[in-house]
Design a binder for these strands. Sequence first.
RNA 1: GGAAGCGUGGCCGAGUGGUUGAAGGCACCGGUCUUGAAAACCGGCAAGGGGCAACCCUUCGUGAGUUCGAAUCUCACCGCUUCCGCCA
Length: 424
Amino acid sequence: MLDPALLRNRLDEVAERLASRGFEFPRARFEQLEAQRKALQSDTQALQAQRNARSRAIGQAKAAGQDTAPLMAEIAGLGERLQASEAALAELQQQLHDLAANLPNLPDQGVPEGRSEADNAEIKRWGEPRSFDFRARDHVELGERNGWLDGDTAARMSGARFTVLRGGLARLHRALAQFMLDLHTGEHGYLECNVPVLVHGHSLYGTGQLPKFEEDLFAIEGEERRYLIPTSEVPLTNIVRERIVEAGELPLRMSAHSMCFRSEAGSYGRDTRGMIRQHQFEKVELVSIVGGQDSAAELERMTGCAETVLEKLGLPYRRMLLCTGDMGFAAARTYDLEVWLPSQQTWREISSCSNCGDFQARRLQARWRNPDTGKPELVHTLNGSGVAVGRALVAVMENGQNADGTITIPEVLRPYMGGLALLS
RNA sequence: GGAAGCGUGGCCGAGUGGUUGAAGGCACCGGUCUUGAAAACCGGCAAGGGGCAACCCUUCGUGAGUUCGAAUCUCACCGCUUCCGCCA
C-alpha cells in the first residue's frame, strides 16, 4: 500500500512513477472519489460532533436534575441523517481502499526504466561457464537415466508440473536445502524458522499477493478458506504483522526452508520440461525486517548472502538489477540472481531479492518504535530466495555432470551426503 | 465434538449507560537531587484520520442491535485459556 498522504499531495509524481513500471493510475476516478470523500467526511464528522455535544448536554442536564425533554426534541432526526451519512462515507472509503490495494509499489530512485526483462541491468558476473568436451545433457536426461527423476509417475498421481525424486538425487535435493539453511543460520545471522504453509487471506493481503493475484494461488476450501503459500516470504513477513517491534530487536533476520505452491496460471507451455517450473517446490527464504534508514544496505547484504550459496556450490551466476517493468507488485528494488544452465546455454533465475520499503508494512501494520522520536514508524521489509532448491538441484546436476552421466557433488554438500563425492 | 471462563493502551490491570480516550502500575522520555549512577521526587507519555490552525472525528477482539448517549446492555462471529472426548 502506498502512503495515502503521497496520493493526496503528490499525485503527479505518483502517477508518473507508476507509469514507469507500466501501471496506468486511474487518475480521474481517484480524484472524483477523493473529492466526494472529503466533502462527505467533513459533513459526517460535523454531524457526529453535534450528536456528541448534545448527548453530553443531556447527561449534564440529567445530573443537574433538569428536564431533558427539550434537548431530546432538539436532536430528533439527527440519528437517521448521521446513519445515512456514515453509510455513504463507508461505501466511498471502501472504493478508495479497493483502488489503493491494487496499486503496486513505487520503484526506487536508481531503478532502470524498462518494460521487460530485456531492459534489466547486469550488475556483476561470477564464475566461468564451463566448456564441455562432450555433449552436455539437460537435467531431465541426466535424471531419467537412473530413475532419479520421474515426471511420468508424478503426472499419473498429480498431473503436469510435479516430479518424483528417488535415491541419490532425492538425497542431494535434501542436502541442498540443509546446506543453505545451515549457511544462513550459522554464518549469516538469520534465525531459523519453521512456518505454516497454509495461511489466511489477510496474510497474503499483507505481503501483496491478494487481492490482485489470487489466480496464482492454490486455495483450500474448508470451514475457513486458506491458501497454500507461494513462498515463505508470506508467513515470515507476517510474523511482525500488527506488531510494534522494539528498536533493539532490529534488524530482524529470519530464514525458513519450506514448500511453495504456485498455480502457474498463465504460464502454459513455458518450462514444461523438468523441474524448472513446478506447482510444488522447495525454497530457503530470507526475510529481513529493518528500520527505514537501513533497508538499502540490507538489500545489498541479503543479496550477498544468496550469492554466497551459489559461490560455495561453484555455480556461475550473474546479478541483475530489475527494471521498472519487470519488478514484482510489492518491490521497490529487486536483484535477480541468474545461474548458468549449460543445457539451455542461458542464465536462469534462481533467486530474487527485493526491498519492499514500507509497502508491505503499511498493509501489515508492522511498526517499530523509533527511540529518537518515541513514536512508532513503519518498518521496511525485505525478502530474498536463498535460494530456490529445485532450480539449484538442476544447476548442480547440469554444471557438475560428467561424460558418463554421473554427477560430481560440490564439496560443501558432501558432508550432507555421507561423504559421497560422485552421484552414479 | 461437549462444558466453563476470558478478550481494555507498548505491557499488566481498574472500569455503577452520561465531560472515561479510559484509574493505577510497569516500561519509556524530560527535569530536580547526586562527583557519577541508583533510589526518591516532579512533569510528560495510545494509535489512526481530517484541518493552515484553533480544533474536530474514529478506535476498549470483530460485526450488527438497543439508546439522545455504549468499554459498560443484547445477539452473532472470531480468538485465547482450562476441563472432558478424539487424535499424529
